[in-house]
Design a binder for these strands. Structure first.
Length: 504
RNA sequence: GGUGCCGUAGCCAAGUGGUAAGGCAGAGGUCUGCAAAACCUCUAUUCGGCGGUUCGAAUCCGCCCGGCACCUCCA
């Protein structure tokens, strides 16, 4: 297996080889904790999660660092409006972010450095750049990076230096720079900054870090001068990552990152999701609506990360249906009766081969998902024909399925609710007899729903045994009304929570 | 104006020179008392348009049309 990734720095697909295998250092730009992150933000974070999970699947030891930006124009502005200190404003949103990550099954990074806790490192970096003469102090007391001192400037974003001058927003620049293209490293403290506690002392003047500075300082402090992969959203290519490269490499003389990966935007109604456009959907909105994170991740996996993704209710619903199919299959396979299933090990090998080939090709998740769907169909057919699977075959199939599912995280979590099979087997026999003449009734107030559902399953099973269809149907109708699905099998009556497709 | 990405069935989407994966939705069928789940069959003579290269193009080249994003603090 050879993993190839599209490197924004070189503008082509490259074979991924870490600097010091099996270790892979990964730095990803995290959220600005001024508000709740929206699912557009999370599309990128989920992509990064799939990336690191796949690297782990491929045998690498990933060291992942994700920063939290807790000081910038927006956090300061929001704190000022709320009349609280900066940290008081950002802390709840940082907590909310971690909560959302857990919901979306994003594996925790090894470290989540926050900008405000790395101010000394940032001050050091600015001082080094001043000492080297690539940074200068403006008349306003801020410190700027002079891009004419860094010839490689513009390599990542391919923005021609002359065109940059004609940039659309340059005229709105509010700072005192020698050249419009220069960017701020350290912003001189303003009263608004002081008011919320967003100002620090430095040899070159009291102030606060510019946007890009934190990533350069924290990445170097935690991962060293050169990391294997730096990832983020496409919007960060310019200026954020371009500027990170300039300030880091001007200070160290070494490449900041060997691979630069950028995820395309999630779109809603044809445009990017942004607070500016007021078309925000947050992770907590989706959670409150009852969506399983697997549905969201399935939707995200249905488009390769370098392509724009359309987020619509229909698409999410379709993804949820597909994800439910995976959970359905997982449960069926795990509880397959022994015997047969000789074809499963070969299917399992084919799954992992196809999955690896797809993911190796610049993390082609749609193809990887298709491989999983192929496997599910083929294995279901095998189970249909064989009526079961020998433990060794079953376990081989289960292991492959789980390894793949571990990377994508597209299988809905097993429900905490009941999954009951009422049978006439010994032990259940007495129960079946006891309910034989019972009429199905709705659960009593305060009654345990699981126990109630099990009793109705027994009632239906007994009724079916007597061909008492009206009673059997009443039991099923009641169960359906209470969110359960009823399946009659050779083994008995199975009652499972109805798969979750909100709004369907 | 500059830079980049993209346009494949009702919808999502893979495929980047050898004759159109997969999913969702829909139709029919097997199974079932009826269902559900699962499986089977069907649903693009065609890949935004027009030219060109080639034995052969969704795939390469040119032009055109359409969409999206970035161009100083947006993932």
């Amino acid at each position: 297996m050879t993993l190839r990734l599209y490197n924004t720095l070189t503008h082509r697909l490259e074979e991924f080889v870490p600097l010091a295998p099996p270790r892979v250092t990964l730095y990803t730009c995290g959220p600005t904790v001024w508000n709740y992150a929206h699912i557009g933000n999370f599309r990128t974070f989920v992509f990064e999660d799939v990336l690191r999970r796949y690297l782990a699947y491929a045998g690498y030891a990933v060291e992942h660092v994700m920063n939290l930006t807790d000081v910038d124009d927006r956090t300061i502005g929001a704190a000022a409006r709320a009349g609280v200190r900066l940290a008081a404003h950002t802390a709840p949103f940082a907590d909310a972010f971690f909560e959302d990550c857990r919901y979306l099954r994003i594996a925790p990074a090894a470290q989540y450095p926050r900008a405000t806790r790395f101010v000394p490192q940032m001050v050091d970096l600015v001082q080094r750049l001043l000492d080297r003469g690539v940074a200068y102090r403006g008349d306003d007391g801020s410190v700027y990076f002079g891009i004419d001192k860094f010839p490689a400037y513009g390599r990542l974003s391919q923005v021609d230096r002359r065109e940059l001058k004609a940039g659309a927003r340059v005229s709105s620049d509010e700072y005192d720079k020698a050249d419009a293209r220069d960017f701020v490293l350290w912003k001189a403290a303003k009263p608004e900054d002081e008011a919320v506690g967003a100002a620090w002392d430095a040899p070159f003047g009291r102030g606060r870090p510019g946007w890009h500075l934190e990533c350069s300082a924290m990445a170097q402090a935690l991962l060293g001068e050169t990391m294997d992969i730096h990832a983020g959203g496409v919007d960060l290519i310019f200026p954020h990552h371009e500027d990170e490269i300039a300030q880091s490499e001007a200070a160290t003389g070494k490449p900041l990152a060997r691979f630069w990966l950028h995820a395309e935007f999630l779109q809603i109604a044809g445009t990017k999701m942004s607070k500016r456009y007021g078309n925000i959907v947050t992770a907590r909105d989706l959670r409150e609506d009852g969506w399983d994170a697997a549905a969201i991740r399935t939707l995200f996996c249905s488009t390769q990360y370098r392509k724009q993704l359309q987020f619509t209710d229909d698409a999410l619903r379709a993804a949820a249906t597909g994800a439910a199919r995976l959970a359905e299959f997982r449960a069926r396979l795990a509880s397959a009766p022994p015997g047969g299933g000789g074809g499963l090990p070969a299917l399992a090998r084919a799954l992992e081969a196809a999955f690896g080939a797809a993911m190796d090709d610049d993390l082609d998740a749609p193809r990887a998902l298709a491989a999983l769907m192929d496997f599910v169909r083929d294995a279901n057919r095998e189970l249909d024909q064989e009526g079961g699977a020998a433990p060794a075959s079953r376990d081989a199939a289960l292991a492959a399925f789980d390894r793949v599912a571990e990377v994508l995280q597209v299988v809905p979590a097993p429900s905490a609710a009941v999954s009951i099979t009422a049978t006439s087997a010994p032990g259940a026999g007495s129960g079946a007899a006891a309910v034989a003449g019972e009429d199905p009734v709705p659960p009593a107030a305060g009654e345990d729903v699981a126990a109630w559902a099990e009793r109705l399953a027994r009632i239906r099973f007994a009724a079916r045994g007597r061909k008492d269809w009206p009673r059997a149907d009443r039991a099923r109708t009641l169960l359906q009304e209470h969110g359960f699905e009823v399946r009659d099998t050779k083994e008995g009556v199975q009652v499972v929570p109805r798969r979750q497709v909100p709004g369907a």
